[in-house]
Amino acid sequence: MSKGLSSSSVGRKVLMAVSGFFLMFFLMQHFVINLFSVISADLFNEVSHFMGTNGLVQFVLQPVLLVGVLFHLGMGIYLDVKNKAARPVKYAMDKPSENSNWMSRNMIITGIMVMLFLGLHFYDFWLPEIKDKFIDGKWDEPTKYFTHLQHKFQDLARIVIYCISFVFLSLHLLHGFQSAFQSAGFNHNKYTPTIRKLGNLYAIIIPAGFVFIALFHYFKQL
């Protein structure tokens, strides 16, 4: 390879797609584990404890995930700044809705909203977990996860923020899923229509599922 992929517009696009695929895969496994909390507290605790103490997950996948999130955010902002600079004088009259949908034009807005939510999510769940394990040295607490989740989902304001954030996530995915395939060079007459349908399903079912889980725990504790 003559130059790094990140040095060209097409390469950066592919890297955005690859990090997007990775994050979508992660989101799906996160959703499945969260769904266990609806089925059984013990099952949720068991799986969460495994994820929270497994060496491969903690010391390999977790750092990769963090890098993936930061890369997707950083590259997204960098590309948006470059794209805005590519049109220094705006049109006095512009009708973008005639040829493209809102989601595709506002990925930076929906993306930043999701990242702001991630800040709250990290504060709620990830930072306490890091503190427990890496500062306080408490690695063996196999039953704390469900209790912690219930505690956080008692707060109505938090539930509202979570639900709104998942609407932004859904809007982001409605374009992002199929766009990642296009960026990676996968556009085929036979398969692309199915990919678009799968993308729409993924973008609605996964965020709606997260909203359901949050509401389930909130109303259960009323």
Partner: peptide, 11 residues
Amino acid sequence: EGFGNCTNTGA
């Protein structure tokens, strides 16, 4: 040339 990056809007 300073063109922007494609974000697949399809416009």
